[in-house]
């Protein structure tokens, strides 16, 4: 006998130790997420995957599935919440989609479409952030970093290098690179690293490949994120 629980009325099987997110991914149910990638330890920081269990808000990516629980996912209230969270991410960074090389294959943009976010609502912070183009094969645009820490986890846990780190506190929190100069070129980073292929947005990008795939023919131009899932998964396939 397998265990099961419910997401928006659909019965979802799970095995012990699985989170709500794990079980949903296995069952092909889309719960919006940005900081989650099943290859890495769940993080729970973007809060986009917030769902309700018996009226209580929890992050689906860090909460264990439980027998018979009733999970609400795509309700009006939760979609509205997610739209607000997405707006906050846009407020905090500098995201100019029309001029971004990641446009069409960016998870932030794709989730925003999924949640029906059409226009900004709050005053943006327009922070002054830099670009690190020191590395021959990879560029980092800090303007677009959403602090999901996927590169941090990938570099530490898969590449065993710990090239990326978070420093600062609160709104000053920011991504740092472990090298004497703080530049990527002086770090142990290599463009074949796992960390080079996990960024859900256009903050870590390969050089020399700009616009190889024309806008209009990119992943989320073809199908919505709720059907095709994470961009990292597809990148992996394309690389092989």
């Amino acid at each position: 006998m397998t265990n099961s629980f419910e997401i928006d009325g659909i019965t979802v099987p799970f095995s012990n130790g699985q989170t709500i997110m794990d079980a949903a991914l296995t069952a092909g149910i889309y719960i919006p997420h940005l900081c989650h990638n099943p290859e890495f330890k769940p993080h729970g920081s973007c809060r986009l995957c917030t769902v309700l269990i018996n009226g209580r808000s929890v992050a689906a990516c860090t909460t264990p599935a439980g027998e018979g629980i009733v999970v609400e996912n795509e309700t009006h209230e939760l979609v509205t919440q997610r739209r607000l969270l997405l707006k906050l991410l846009f407020v905090e960074g500098n995201h100019t989609c029309p001029g971004c090389e990641k446009s069409g294959a960016c998870q932030l943009q794709a989730v925003a479409y999924h949640c029906g976010m059409l226009a900004p609502e709050f005053v943006h912070f327009y922070p002054k952030r830099s670009i690190d183009a020191s590395h021959p094969d990879t560029i980092i645009d800090f303007n677009r970093c959403i602090l999901c820490e996927l590169c941090v986890r990938a570099s530490r846990d898969s590449d065993k290098k710990a090239v990326f780190n978070i420093s600062g506190r609160g709104i000053q929190a920011h991504l740092t690179i472990d090298s004497p100069s703080g530049k990527l070129a002086d770090s142990a980073f290599n463009s074949s690293d796992k960390a080079a292929r996990v960024c859900p947005v256009g903050a870590i990008l390969p050089k020399h490949k700009g616009y190889n795939i024309p806008i209009g023919q990119r992943l989320y131009d073809q199908a919505p994120i709720s059907q095709v899932g994470d961009v990292a998964k597809h990148q992996e396939v394309a690389d092989e």
Binding site: C46, L85, L89, A173
Partner: peptide, 21 residues
């Protein structure tokens, strides 16, 4: 709260700054 938010999660990191503004 804006000063003391640890900065880990989106709603508090950005929300506490936005509320102050």
């Amino acid at each position: 709260f804006r000063h003391e938010s640890c900065g880990f999660c989106t709603p508090c990191r950005v929300g506490s700054s936005l509320l102050a503004k």
